[in-house]
Design a binder for these strands. Sequence first.
DNA 1: GGCAACTTTGCAGATTCGGCAAGTTGCGGT
DNA 2: ACCGCAACTTGCCGAATCTGCAAAGTTGCC
Lengths: 207, 207
Amino acid sequence: MDTDRAGLRERKKQETRIALSWAAIRLTVERGLDNVRIEDIAAEAGVSTRTFSNYFGSKGEAIVARHHDRARAIAAALRERPAAEPIWDAITQAALEGFALGQPVPQGHAADQSWLEGLRLMVAEPALQGEFQKAGAAAEAEFAAAIAERTGTDVAQDVYPRLVAGVVGAALNVVTQQWLVAEPPQSLEALLRDVFGRLAAGLPEPH
Amino acid sequence: MDTDRAGLRERKKQETRIALSWAAIRLTVERGLDNVRIEDIAAEAGVSTRTFSNYFGSKGEAIVARHHDRARAIAAALRERPAAEPIWDAITQAALEGFALGQPVPQGHAADQSWLEGLRLMVAEPALQGEFQKAGAAAEAEFAAAIAERTGTDVAQDVYPRLVAGVVGAALNVVTQQWLVAEPPQSLEALLRDVFGRLAAGLPEPH
DNA sequence: GGCAACTTTGCAGATTCGGCAAGTTGCGGT
DNA sequence: ACCGCAACTTGCCGAATCTGCAAAGTTGCC
């Protein structure tokens, strides 16, 4: 989390983690999930395969790590929003902040068409679906805690915070997917506002 | 799907599938996920390990198979609801029907305390979280299709059907979890009505 | 009865997973 | 500056999983 305040040790760990995750993503986008072995990812990141296992339990986990970090960033951002702010406004803002941080497309791949195509293939990979969901679920726990805190409810007793957290997670998934696929492209901000607006309105049927 | 109309062949396949899934669940509840090998599950169901792999790609898949089937049943039930019915009523009813079918606790384990305890441990298993979510996600595709059909929207273009499907999936997860943990126990019906009611109301903050 | 389609199964090779012990390196105390 | 501890990396190895392939056993249908 804190890329600044931390010893060399901690920094290096983060670097390896990110290097591994990114290597996993890049190779998967380029070759397809099945054509990437852990060995390749480790080599790409300059560590041993055994070290890979120290960081992630599987290929999927590594690939989804950035997704996971972003979700946690959003949860963290939510805690920072003023308590007086209506909850859906707060969530929308937190999501915007979280998405603003992580660049999903580092380096020079920004407008690369084949990269985008590979990305779409990757997120469509059935074996990764569960992994993405799992990452979201892990973050949802933090969400739920943040929401419980804000609304004075109890995570253990009340359904409310977990329900909102789950719904937000689902919404983020849909937004991410739609953003990736939409033709013509839509801005993340517009998508987020649209989706959270619908949620706050009780998901009325469109007509 | 059709346990009736089908040859002996199809019936046997379903039986094996269910036997495997249930063996996986039972052994996991009793011993814990890490102490169950595919070999054990296959033996329990009276087939070879190779056959296990013909049905499921992993232990996790086998364990969540029933969960998965139920989610699909709910999606199917939704299609049967009258088109005029308000959407949240239809979804609530479909969920009630879907849950009514699958007995999560066959045999004589119904009120068994240690069984319940094992179940809680099982659903808390991190390695299975993703699996559960994945099963839900697979069903969500059918949900989205059903909702799109009902509301005259387009799954590919509109965000609405996927958003609702995702939200419903999240809601079902929360309900299942709450139902399993709630002390004192709450009825599924009450939980479902509560949760879907909140969703339809735009998830207002409790006070 | 007999053929065609489907399912089960054993086997082998590739890959992944996780414990263990040895080697390295950052961090803090003296 | 020095030293010892704790953390991290790594290689090695065995257990477990996954998958293709071909043989053997079943089922459905004429």
